Structure formats: C-alpha cells, structure tokens
Simulated scan of single mutants.
Amino acid sequence: MTHPAAAVALAGRSLRISRRSPEALITALMLPVVLMLIFVYFFGGAIDTGTTYVTYVVPGAILLCAGFGAASTAVSVTEDMRNGVVDRFRTHDIGGIPILAGHVTASVLRNLISTTLVLTVALAIGFRPQAGPLGFLAAAGLLLAYITAISWLAAVLGLLAGTPEAAGGFTFLMMFLPYPSSAFVPIETMPGWLHGFAHHQPLTPVIESLRALLLDRPAGDAPWIALAWCAGITAVAVGLAGILFRSKTR
C-alpha cells in the first residue's frame, strides 16, 4: 500500500473509532460552542472591543475548538502505541509517518466539522462576516494550515505520553494558549508584563488574520506571520514525530 493510500485508510479508521465514542465526540464538538456562548452572554457586555463582542470572539472560539480537537489526536496516538496495533500495521510495511498522518487527517476532518458548527451558532447569535469569496477562501486556507500544524503537534505529544491520561494533560497547553492572546479580550487590557508574550505567541497572528479576513479589514503582515508559524510548527512536528516513532518501535 502506498503512503498516501495508507494515510487515507488509517484516517478512515480513526474516524470510525471516533464514532464508537460518541460522548467524547459530542464533548469536543459542543464545548467550544458552549464556551463561546458563555463569553458572549456572560462576559461580553463587560468587555469593550470596539465592536459587538460576538464579532470579536468568533476567531478565538474557532481556534479553541481546534485545540479540543487536537487533544483527541494525542490520546488516540498514545492508545495506538500502547495497544499493539502499530506492530500489526508495521507487518504490512506501513511506516510511522503514514500511521500518524492518518490520525492527523482524521483530526483535520473532525475540526472542520466542529468549526462549521461553531460558525453556524455564531451566525445564529449575530456574527456577520463581511468577507468576499477570496477572503473566505484565504481564511479557510489559514485555518486549515493551523489545524494541520496543531494536529501534528498533538501527534508528537501523543508519542511522548506514556498513557492516554498523560496525553490529555500534555495538550492542556494547546487549549490554554488562546487565552493569553487577542482571542477573547484586547491585549492592551492585559497586565503589562503579559503584553510581550501575548503579542508574539503563534495564536495571536492567526486570530488577527482570521478576524481581518472574515470582516474584510486590512490584515497587514499578520497572515504571513501566521503562515510562517504554521509552516514552522508543522515541519518541526513532522520531523520530531518521525524520530520519536522510530525510537519507540525499535
């Protein structure tokens, strides 16, 4: 079996496994929606963003959604490494990268579904994007690059973890990163000592780019910075994943 065909087949396997755990799937789909509703209706009236709060918060909610989706990728990679299924795959001459690419592909597909759900709910509660076709296409491309990067990073964390519980713990950082960024409040409202990190961490240019593209506003150089972060994270994560997989399956 060729590497692309193996990755597609293994992605289908990961999606079928997701269907067998509907509680986890529903949680991953609904939790970002619930958090968005909490921010909009509980805290939005107290936060001045210069626009309606739902308009401001949607890009952050989308990335928060991607973080929850990536957490399940780390857990599923760890489970495969522990239960012996990887050894069976290797007897069919399937290497580590196709195995992990199957998990990543499934993560991307799950995240696209959950992102669609978040956007649907956002539209229902007042989000009104102003982008034209090219703006939506650019936003979708950037989001795809980010989801791919964070999914490969989750695969690395899954390889590092010894248990599924530890894998879930390792991914806490990815779910936490949207908070010290411009996702939910303007960075200028944060304590001064936090400004440097919030401005220069990878999620801020992704969020600012999505916000500008969806609302048809000037994006400056934020999309290029965001794409550079995504490309760098993906390249490093794929390299580390290959090294870790080989070391754990000798």
Score class of each variant (00 low, 15 high):
H3C: 11
A5N: 10
A5K: 12
A6G: 08
A6I: 07
A7V: 14
A7W: 13
L10I: 11
L10P: 04
G12Y: 04
G12N: 07
S14P: 03
R16P: 06
S18K: 00
S21G: 03
I26E: 01
L35V: 09
V40T: 15
V40Y: 01
F43H: 08
G44W: 04
G45T: 07
I47W: 00
T52F: 04
T55M: 11
G60D: 13
L63W: 08
L64Y: 13
C65M: 09
A66K: 02
G67T: 06
G69F: 02
V75I: 15
V75E: 10
S76I: 02
V77P: 01
V85C: 14
D87S: 15
F89E: 13
D93Y: 13
P98E: 06
I99E: 10
A101P: 10
G102N: 14
N111M: 08
N111P: 10
T116I: 15
T120W: 06
V121G: 00
A122R: 03
R128M: 10
A131C: 14
A131M: 12
A131E: 11
L134I: 14
A139C: 09
L143T: 14
I147Q: 08
V156D: 02
L159W: 02
L160R: 08
L160A: 10
E165G: 05
E165W: 02
A166D: 04
A167N: 06
F176N: 01
P178I: 10
Y179R: 04
E188F: 12
P191H: 06
W193T: 00
L194K: 00
G196F: 01
G196T: 06
F197W: 09
H199L: 11
P202K: 00
P202G: 00
T204Y: 04
V206D: 03
V206Y: 04
L213H: 04
D216A: 15
D221P: 08
D221V: 15
W224F: 14
W224G: 06
I225W: 14
A226L: 11
W229D: 11
G232D: 13
G232Y: 13
T234I: 07
A237Y: 09
V238A: 13
G239F: 08
L240A: 13
A241T: 03
G242I: 00
G242C: 00
K248V: 01
R250K: 08
